[in-house]
């Protein structure tokens, strides 16, 4: 596990030190990309001062899905079954739509056994942060190809993948996620900004993070290795995140940067690199993704952002209080109503 994240202050806005944002000691391999993602999550939640009790963390099964045990020890966590965390997370938010939900998954978990649930979570725009810790293999079952393995990618055993990969970002944009991003576990600054933007976003954020498996997929011939990412990572923009509570006036050169105001008033700043990229253009987002794949580039950054579509729990028009906390008077109709119903069947 890497060391304490950069933190100038002792306590955050919620008056908490970083400790409650950490979790149990990781049991993953040293150098596993998943550990770095855990660190970024700890930082992001701490720096934004999110109260741990208001967060739930869920996952499926896999090395990646173990990680919720390693961050936010004061948040309820649920390591459920393989591939089906989207369903459990959806149910959790039905019971209590005030919770902030982080769901961690792997590429096997999401793109194979759980792809049905993943697709329908996208359609519903369930308001949660969905992180795919993507290493192109099944880590926990010792290195078989996953469905995100790229064409021509090679396993340590020499086996070459000849099947078309599932691109979770393409699916996310096509099927209805409202924030779609790709990042690399080794890119601290970018991943941090993306995670914070997701915390500020109202709707489903899908973050596909290339996260090398040092034990089974970090060799030459792998397209999910540290070395491969060093050569092929193609950021769309540089990102900065300015939280709503930081009273800084964001002023940037018009031609150089875009400033996007998030749901909670925070600002996401997209600094222009090769092009001026507008993440609200859905068709264009799909095009750049396809184009990058054709050029063997791994496009990273916030690829798509829609701040208008209502989330699933909003569309259900639920009462303000969590359903879990409603009193008997609110959920059990009266004696008169039962008598009226009985009469209808007489």
């Amino acid at each position: 596990m890497s060391t304490v994240p950069a933190a100038p202050k002792k306590v955050n806005r919620a008056g908490l030190e970083i400790l409650p944002y950490r979790g149990g000691k990781t049991t993953l391999c040293a150098g596993c990309g998943h550990n770095a993602i855990t660190e970024r999550l700890i930082e992001a939640f701490w720096e934004l001062g999110v109260e741990p009790w208001s967060v739930v963390k869920l996952s499926g099964i896999g090395c990646s899905s173990k990680t919720p045990a390693y961050f936010l020890s004061q948040s309820h966590g649920f390591n459920a079954v393989h591939g089906r965390a989207p369903a459990v997370s959806t149910g959790t938010l039905l019971a209590n739509h005030q919770l902030r939900c982080v769901t961690v998954s792997g590429d096997g978990d999401t793109a194979s056994i759980g792809i049905g649930h993943f697709m329908h979570m996208l359609r519903r725009n369930v308001p949660l942060i969905y992180i795919i810790e993507n290493n192109g293999v099944y880590g926990l079952t010792k290195g078989q190809f996953s469905a995100t393995a790229d064409l021509g990618a090679k396993l340590k055993t020499g086996t070459v993948n000849q099947l078309q990969p599932v691109d979770c970002c393409l699916a996310g944009i096509e099927m209805g996620a409202t924030l779609v991003a790709r990042s690399f576990s080794g890119d601290k600054r970018q991943l941090s900004a993306i995670l914070k933007a997701s915390i500020a976003h109202n709707g489903l954020s899908v973050i596909d993070v290339i996260s090398p498996c040092v034990t089974f997929n970090d060799h030459a011939g792998s397209t999910k290795s540290y070395a491969y990412m060093k050569d092929h990572d193609e950021p769309l923009h540089e990102l900065d995140f300015v939280p709503a509570f930081e009273e800084i006036d964001v002023e940037f050169d018009e031609g150089e940067s875009r400033v996007v105001e998030m749901h909670d008033g925070s600002k996401l700043v997209l600094h222009k690199l090769e092009r001026d990229y507008d993440p609200s253009n859905r068709i264009h987002a799909l095009e750049v993704l396809h184009e990058a794949t054709r050029r063997d580039e791994v496009l990273t950054g916030i690829i798509y952002l829609d701040r208008t579509r209502p989330s699933f729990t909003e569309a259900l028009n639920l009462v303000d209080a969590p359903l879990a906390t409603l009193a008997e008077e609110q959920v059990r109709p009266s004696r008169e109503i039962l008598e009226q119903i009985n009469e209808e069947f007489r």
Binding site: A87, V88, T90, G91, H117, L318, V319, Q330
Partner: peptide, 28 residues
């Protein structure tokens, strides 16, 4: 006029029980 309930027609029974379990866990 807001609902004191949520109904979801899930994508399959794996999801319907998964959602029900998630909701039960969170107190519904």
């Amino acid at each position: 006029g807001k609902a004191t309930y949520a109904v979801v027609q899930a994508e399959d029974e794996l999801a319907s029980i998964g959602m029900a379990v998630g909701a039960g866990w969170a107190g519904a």
